[in-house]
Design a binder for these strands. Structure first.
Lengths: 150, 150
DNA sequence: TAGATAAGTTTCATTATGAAACTTATTGCG
DNA sequence: CGCAATAAGTTTCATAATGAAACTTATCTA
């Protein structure tokens, strides 16, 4: 397959993000981590992923600072995998994926999990807006530019 | 490899979303589509993707209703690939990925592209909030539940 | 009309993936 | 404690996905 091209040097933040996350499985691992899972076997059972692949993905996610491995018990060799701050900052990505999935991938009336605020029970949504807080129609009003970090 | 497990029947909208998008390349194709690209060769040059893979991905994205193929010229056989409404609804996902990338994958001062509102030039951001519009700390306040469509 | 692009498809070598078996650590529990 | 059951990986091997390049047609363009 000749080593997949890396996009770490791409000027586009989305491309780098996709590259950093790595793949399909990794994002599902992150989802489960948001769901409170920390152990190898939990991820394995939840995802049905092959052990060798899970092992490799956990290693990569850890190397990239999205997860961190902490010893499960003092002195023990078993690990718990926890989201780092960088990993937790993927939350909006998860919410965005979820929202799109709810909109387009379920038939009316079909059951699905929901994301709610713990205290109020209110549904969590996600809004694209300008810096000054004005919600913005995703479609029309944007363009992309290359520029200095701003 | 024994057919990758499909998640179309998963109760979790994020899992279905990841499954529907398919992979890394597909999301980059969608990104380029947001950037105005429509032609096979444009995607190919922009992404450096192998032609056979691009061909397959465009077919899949089209089959899943994220892109639609429209004849480039009346009577001609060349296609233009355009985002459908379903595809354009992936915008928040793109913005979320971009925002995370900007936050965590660039060194200070490093150049990157930015997403701005066309009219005002203001940066576009993305907020996680409850239905009533109250911004919410991504980390603390959420849980997941399975329930009837609501 | 000829040459140059565009848009794919085919072929073939290589890599990634998945399943299952195999290893060591850890944990429970009597 | 001691032994069976789990947990957490690693190894091996067959198979599927990927990438590069060559090969086809269709479509532009000068």
């Amino acid at each position: 397959m000749v080593k997949r091209r890396s996009l770490v040097s791409d000027y586009c933040p989305s491309a780098r993000a996709l590259d950093a996350i790595g793949d399909w499985w990794s994002m599902l691992i992150v989802r489960d981590a948001f769901d409170g899972m920390t152990r190898f076997s939990e991820f394995q059972k939840s995802l049905g992923i092959a052990r060798n692949i899970l092992s490799e993905r956990l290693r990569t996610l850890t190397a990239r600072g999205i997860l961190e491995a902490v010893p499960a018990a003092a002195g023990g060799s078993r690990q718990e995998y926890r989201l780092t701050t960088k990993g937790r900052d993927l939350f909006p990505v998860m919410v965005a994926l979820r929202q799109w999935g709810e909109q387009h991938l379920f038939t009316p009336g079909e059951k699905h999990s929901s994301l709610i605020e713990r205290d109020s029970g209110r549904k969590v949504t996600l809004t694209v807006q300008t810096e000054d807080g004005r919600p913005i129609g995703a479609d029309e009003a944007m363009i992309l530019k290359v520029q200095e970090t701003g």
